[in-house]
Design a protein around this nucleic acid. Structure first.
Lengths: 134, 134
DNA sequence: GTGTGACTGAAAGTCCGTA
DNA sequence: GTACGGACTTTCAGTCACA
């Protein structure tokens, strides 16, 4: 689940929760109807500028638009709890979905041999927390 | 404080907290060295695609990168507390800074008279929570 | 009310260099 | 280690007509 999916899902859900059409949201976010449609269909990777406008239109924080949809996992334990028994869990898998945009890989195909050697040579205090085996 | 500012501040802070150079982060995020520099200088409104890569590189949620920087307000009460006495507060002002990008205004200059009338005619259940007197 | 193709201008994003 | 410049390609952002 990449951010396009998250944004698309959140946008559609939040928009409908307010009873707004795409056009209505588009108007409030100062954008076009078809653009909202495109975002909800994951066509574009919206910039944080439009993200801010969308968040403002929906009257919530921009960060909320990028948070994975909440999946409430009910605790079925024996002792009866109240609402606190519900545990919020987000489907936040690393995910290995086929990437929509092929462009991102362009940067990945750079000549790393030179840069890698040059950089790792200066790696002294950098914590290598991400081995990243390609 | 718009999202460019938030991202710039968060990125620089989180990057330095890990002791990474811009180039180091750029490498981990599969992007360019100069691009990280540009983001930190608020030159671009990064797309959510790069936002995802940056978050992955920093090993945190993308939404965290867009959350207003935390300002810890120390409670100076008489009884000595431990770390729990610190209260997290985010500077989350609506803010009215002059917008950097002039392009966004292009959509704002549309002929609203027609669209407005057409839309408000169908406004029956839509909660007009945003009067927005321009 | 929404999806879609085509189109265009502007900005994102990459890559080189220099200071 | 970072800022900043130019030149370049790709994508976004915005709009329209049509289904």
């Amino acid at each position: 689940m990449n951010l396009r999916d998250v944004l698309a899902l959140n946008l559609r859900k939040l928009r409908r929760a307010r009873g707004w059409s795409q056009e209505e949201l588009a108007h409030r976010a100062d954008t076009d109807r078809t653009y909202i449609s495109a975002i909800e269909r994951r066509l574009y990777a919206a910039s944080i500028d439009v993200l801010a406008r969308l968040a403002a239109a929906l009257e919530l924080e921009a960060a909320e638009l990028l948070r994975a949809p909440i999946v409430r996992k009910r605790v079925v334990s024996e002792d009866a709890h109240d609402g606190k028994a519900l545990q919020e869990v987000r489907k936040d898998r690393p995910a290995s979905e086929g990437d929509i945009n092929a462009r991102a890989k362009k940067a990945r195909r750079r000549n790393e041999s030179a840069a890698e050697a040059k950089r790792s040579a200066g790696l002294k205090k950098s914590n290598k927390a991400k081995p990243e085996p390609t």
